[in-house]
Design a protein around this nucleic acid. Structure first.
Lengths: 349, 349
DNA sequence: CTGAAAGCGCTTACAG
DNA sequence: CTGAAAGCGCTTACAG
């Protein structure tokens, strides 16, 4: 079925002007081989005739679609405050600078389980694909089999030799924990299921490194679970002996924790300090607002787009694992403990 | 520059099997004119060879890109909780059912002012375009000049003969106000800049109709502004005589109002009732949570996709202005006033 | 059931 | 500086 659109082609412009379509093509693309005056005329007439470039014709010639696929696993799509959608939005904006477009591809749980290639791939709709958000081990293999530049964003996999861009979760949590220790805290818990995602795990390790460096012992009671294997939040169980501070793997969990602490009669930061990660909406909804680490979405998107575009022009290009630094946002959810208060806390043992 | 990808084409499959590419095309597309056995063989070999369909070649033939553009004005992109991004996400999911993809197009303020066509249009990248979020009057004209099926989503314009899909703001606010009146409220304010967007205005009119129907007089003091001309929130000024209830144009403003009321010593709902609109994150962040109207995002996206796909196959198709019903979510921010309390309130006059 | 021919709109050598 | 020819990968008549 042919659409009844009155599509103007280069040939139409050429006919009107009594030149060839080759000349029109050169003029419109600012290429060598047309006199300046003819070029001007052609552009003018093209505008008058409402000419629109047919990118499909170009695509078929050079084998490029001028689209980049952004794949987000379905399970990340339910949230109200969607971090990934905002990342996608920034990606779309940056792709525009390269003359590219972004095609959003929600990876259904079904396709992920059945290891189906995404349609953007099997229909050749994209020149590269950014996988935004952790996918299953099995599906990583499927992605590896795709003959296309690809990039993991916001997660990585040790075994897959696929370039990735992640927030420096490790360093961010390390700095944040250092800050708590400098503020006099010695008994610090970490909240998060460390087997759930690499982000949560790496943030834990940054926390752990800080403990190690300061000669503080880590105990199992200091690791508090926040979600089940499927990623659904569960009630947080406080340890018998209360820590003086909590490092939460994300702001939403920090928010949940604050609510729970308040309900249990603990005040933040008087009774215990809480820090988050992400600096999303939740960080400003607690009272007091949360000290947290801001993920630099714009920088992540910019880096991701640059990296994938590099790979499109040079498929052998490897960038490895690139870290994007976060930034601590200091607010009021951390209390500075006086030396004697630290002692009192220790006596409780 | 030609990409060094080992692209398998139908011709390759045909050569391998000693048939013509026409036959391969028919087999792969399940068309008439190939024996079943040959069809099976072709599909099998195509799979083995890792054949991927070249959609650009198809596009150039039938003049369809199999993409739909979704344009969101830049000024709506700053928010943390992005309603429009979630709508876009649902649109992408529904487009998939039609074999289509969604291309996100952030309309920069610059392009909006200079009345530039979006690149998705001038490069023929889409078969239709959904404009998600109010654009300027001037830019509406630009959109009208685009020779492409188009659709306004979440707003409409009286003068533009462009189909639109909007939440039934009028009816939602009407029902909500009815509910307040049934709960004994007689002095009800509306919070929102009614010249800012058609949504805010229509919600106001629903509120107004409810007042009219119940013989309640509207007074200017009952209309409270919440944002300036550029859409930035301003401090809300309470009227001298406090109303018993507030109908807010959206949940975020309701949330802001609740914070302000609490800070000013008023308790919700004991001292005054508050209702919102949208049922977004903010509706559950107040305490108590807000009674509000839920916008049916999934239904809006489904309707929008169906409508634009209709127009793609039949450019003359007109659907007019389609309303998508919302749904009241009853929570605890509304107090039922006893008859005598209403009287007491009236005595204050 | 099978395939040769033509064409979609553009661009890339290459010849003049 | 200008353009005829060929080709990108597919599909649509049409002929056998």
């Amino acid at each position: 079925m042919k659409l009844m659109k009155s599509n103007i082609t280069m040939k139409d412009i050429a006919n009107k002007l009594g030149v060839s379509s080759v000349t029109v093509s050169k003029a419109l693309n600012d290429k060598e081989g047309v006199s300046d005056s003819l070029k001007v005329t052609i552009k003018k007439v093209a505008g008058e005739m409402g000419y629109r470039f047919n990118s499909a014709a170009k695509s078929i010639k050079d084998g490029l679609s001028y689209n980049i696929g952004v794949m987000i696993p379905q399970r990340f799509t339910g949230m109200n405050d969607s971090f990934y959608l905002r990342v996608y939005q920034e990606i779309a904006i940056h792709l525009d600078h390269y003359g590219y477009f972004g095609i959003l591809n929600i990876l259904s749980s079904e396709d992920e389980e059945q290891l189906n290639f995404p349609r953007v791939y099997s229909e050749n709709k994209v020149d590269g694909i950014i996988i935004l958000g952790q996918i299953s081990k099995k599906y990583i293999e499927t992605v590896q089999n795709m003959d296309l530049p690809k990039l993991f964003l916001d997660f990585y996999d040790e075994h897959a030799a696929i370039d990735s861009i992640v927030t420096d979760n490790f360093y961010g949590a390390y700095e944040l924990t250092n800050y708590l220790i400098q503020s006099g805290h010695r008994d610090i818990a970490y909240v998060g299921n460390i087997y759930s995602t690499s982000s949560i795990q790496d943030r834990f390790l940054g926390y752990y490194k800080s403990l190690l460096e300061h000669g503080l012992a880590f105990e199992d009671r200091l690791l508090l679970n926040d979600r089940d294997e499927r990623g659904y939040y569960i009630d947080i169980e406080l340890p018998e002996k209360m820590p003086t501070a909590f490092v939460c793997n994300c702001d939403q969990v920090a928010y949940n924790l604050c609510e729970f602490l308040n309900a249990s009669g603990y005040k933040v930061p008087e009774d215990c300090s809480v820090v988050g990660f992400d600096n999303d909406l939740y960080a400003t909804l607690t009272s007091p607002p949360l000290t947290t680490v801001e993920v630099d979405i714009e920088q992540m998107a910019r880096t991701a787009v640059k990296s994938i575009m590099d790979k499109v022009s040079n498929p052998n290009r490897r960038n490895g694992r690139v870290l994007v630094q976060g930034k601590i946002i200091y607010r009021d959810s951390v209390r500075t403990l006086e030396a004697d208060q630290v002692k009192i806390n220790n006596k409780h043992k």
